[in-house]
Computed example of a mutant assay.
Amino acid sequence: MSGAQETEAPAKGDRIAKLLARSGVASRREVERMIADGRIAKDGETITTPATLLHSLHGITVDGKMVKQPEPTKLWRFHKPVGALTAERDFSGRTTIYDVFKNTGADLPRVMPIGRLDLNTEGLLLLTNDGAFKRQMELPASGIPRTYRARTFGDVSQSQLEDLISGTVIEGVRYGRIDANLERRTGKNQWVELTLKEGKNREVRRVLEHLGLQVSRLIRTSYGPFYLDDLAKGEVATVRKIDLVNFRKRFEKAEKK
C-alpha cells in the first residue's frame, strides 16, 4: 500500500452564466443569449457554450470590456410610477424604469428588477445587483408574499374575496391562493388589499376583473419583508445590509425545510 496521501479533486467551478448573473452583468437567460451572439470571451477567445465552468471571472470580457469580480449582494427599494416600463429599453420610445433613474439622479450601479410591475401599476419594485439572487426571489417555489392595494369600482362582497383563498381558474389559467380583504367603501368604489405568492402576469387585475370589478389604480405595497412605506414616486432607497442579511438567512433556512 502506497504511503502517498490522497488529494481531493479540485472543485469544478460554476457555470459562466451563473457567475455573470451573480456579478450583475445580466440574467442567466440573457447571458446565454449573449454567448450565442459571440459577445463573451475569456482571455480573448470567444466562449461558445453557457455550460463553460469557471472558478472566477478573471479574464472574462463582455463586448470587449473586462468584467469586474462580483460585488456583495445589495438590494434597493424603488417606488415605480405609473407609465414606466419594467424593462431596460423600449424600441417604441416609451419611458422605462432606467429612464426614471436617470431623471431623478439615482446613484445606482447596474441593477436588475426583481419581478415586474406592468405599465399602469405603481409601487414597490425591488432592485438588485445580483442576478442569482434576483432569480431566487422570483421563483414561484420561493413563496415570497407580495401585497397590493387596488382601487376598484363595482359590486363585491368580503365573502367573494375570501373565496380566492382556495385559488381560481380564469380562461384555463389557475391562479393560486390569494388573501383578499375589503377596505373602505364609498358607494361602488372600494379599496381591496390582496396578498399572493405566485405573481403571474397581470394576476391581480385579471382576478379582480373576473369578479366584475374595474381597477382604476393598483399599488404594490410590499414584497416579502420589504415595504413601500413613504417612498416618493421615482425615489430609490438602499435596504440596510443587516436587513438583507437577516432576510437571506430566514429565506435560505425556509428553503431547506
Rank of each mutant, 00 (worst) to 15 (best):
T168L: 10
K188D: 13
L161T: 03
T121P: 06
L127F: 05
P145E: 13
D155C: 12
S159K: 15
Q158C: 07
R151H: 12
M137G: 07
P140H: 10
I165L: 15
D163M: 14
E183Q: 08
V192A: 02
R202Y: 06
G123N: 05
Y175D: 00
T128L: 09
R135M: 00
Y175E: 04
R174T: 09
L196W: 11
S157D: 11
R149F: 14
S142Q: 11
R149C: 11
L126N: 01
R135Y: 01
L127G: 02
E138W: 05
Y175R: 07
G143I: 07
V169Q: 08
P140L: 05
R174K: 12
L194M: 13
H210N: 14
Q136M: 14
K197P: 01
L139I: 09
Y175Q: 06
T147R: 15
E209F: 06
P140W: 08
R116Q: 06
L182A: 02
V207R: 00
F133D: 06
I178L: 15
T152F: 05
Y175F: 15
R185C: 01
L196F: 10
R146G: 03
T152R: 04
I165D: 02
D130E: 08
R185I: 02
L182P: 04
R149P: 04
E209M: 06
N129Y: 03
R177N: 11
I114H: 03
L194G: 00
D118S: 11
I165F: 13
A150K: 06
Y175M: 03
I170P: 00
T168H: 02
L124R: 12
N181Q: 11
E138V: 03
V156Q: 01
G199Q: 10
Q190E: 04
